[in-house]
Amino acid sequence: MRERKSPFVRLFNKTPAGVCCPHFYELILSNGCPYDCAYCYLRLTFRGNKGPVMFTNPWERVRAEIDKSSSGVFSTGELADSLAVIPPLLWEAVEYFREQKHKYLLLTTKSCNIGLFREVKPTPQVIISFSINAPEIAAKYERLAPPPVARLRAALELLELGWRVRIRLDPVVVEGGLEIYRPICREISSIGVERVTVGTLRQYPGLYRFAPDAPRCGLRKALDGRMRYPVSVRAGVYRAIAEWLGFEPALCKETDEVWKLLGWQFQGCNCTF
């Protein structure tokens, strides 16, 4: 727990050319994550030390920065799991965005820590996005995080309470065969969330210094500098998942060449309203 000296709001616009990723705002209410996911990019971002840090500044300072920003999505999940440890400033953030018309709060999580949302009235200005994976991949690589089925139960509960809920199926890891994703896709489809965004495993080579057990089988260095599966493999993943979901999902940080190969049209993703 400490005060933050750097800005709370900054525009996320650092995606390399050739990768489809609309700009959004990072709203940094906390840093880090208690879960032990082997592939997590935060291991590289924080040089191996990704333990949670909660910021305790007065809300007025955060509000002033948001007030100066234009309309858009403000994500608390770029440098942290939004709900694994509840930031002290989160309640005030929810109430602030409740009064907005063109600004949205996005919370991304692998947790089931939804008690706050049982206690307050839903608002369309707040979106809760649950990161899900195949149970087999979660058991191997998402250590300490709740099981995917538990996350889906939490998502369904929030939906029934009237909150806006999204699912992020990311990262898809194909080393165990793609068929392991069929059941979880069917479950996601049955819940009926407002949007599903899918991404395949991708990571910068520097991650391996801090996460030697990160999955890497089948990855090659792509034009954007990340380690990715070949284009044909990624396109095959998205086609299969679209079939199992029953609709075309959004794609996360995917390259132009994959979009062209699929012939899909971008219609929003996890971080757009």
Rank of each mutant, 00 (worst) to 15 (best):
M1H: 14
V9D: 07
L11G: 09
P16F: 07
A17S: 15
G18L: 04
H23T: 10
Y25L: 02
C37E: 03
Y41I: 02
Y41S: 11
T45Y: 13
G51V: 14
V53F: 06
M54R: 14
M54W: 06
T56A: 11
P58Q: 01
W59Q: 07
V62I: 15
E65Y: 04
I66T: 04
S69G: 08
S71T: 11
G72F: 08
F74Q: 03
S75R: 07
T76Y: 08
A84R: 03
P88V: 08
A93C: 05
E95P: 04
E95T: 11
E95G: 05
R98N: 10
K101S: 12
H102T: 12
L105F: 04
T108K: 09
I114K: 00
F117C: 02
F117T: 03
E119P: 07
K121E: 14
K121V: 13
I128R: 06
F130E: 05
F130K: 07
N133W: 00
I137K: 05
A138E: 08
P147K: 14
V149K: 13
L152A: 05
W163N: 05
R166A: 01
I167A: 05
D170R: 00
V172A: 09
L178V: 04
E179R: 13
I180A: 08
I180T: 10
R182Q: 15
R186T: 11
S189A: 14
E194L: 02
V196P: 01
V196M: 02
T197P: 01
Q203L: 13
P205K: 06
L207T: 08
F210W: 14
P212D: 05
P212T: 03
D213Y: 13
P215L: 07
L219Y: 10
L219M: 11
A222H: 15
D224F: 06
G225A: 10
M227G: 09
Y229C: 02
V231Q: 14
V233T: 15
A235R: 11
A235K: 09
G236T: 02
Y238I: 07
A242N: 09
A242D: 03
A242K: 10
L245I: 00
F247L: 02
E248W: 12
T255V: 12
D256Y: 12
E257I: 10
L262D: 09
W264K: 02
Q265F: 06
G268L: 04
N270C: 15
N270D: 13
T272M: 03
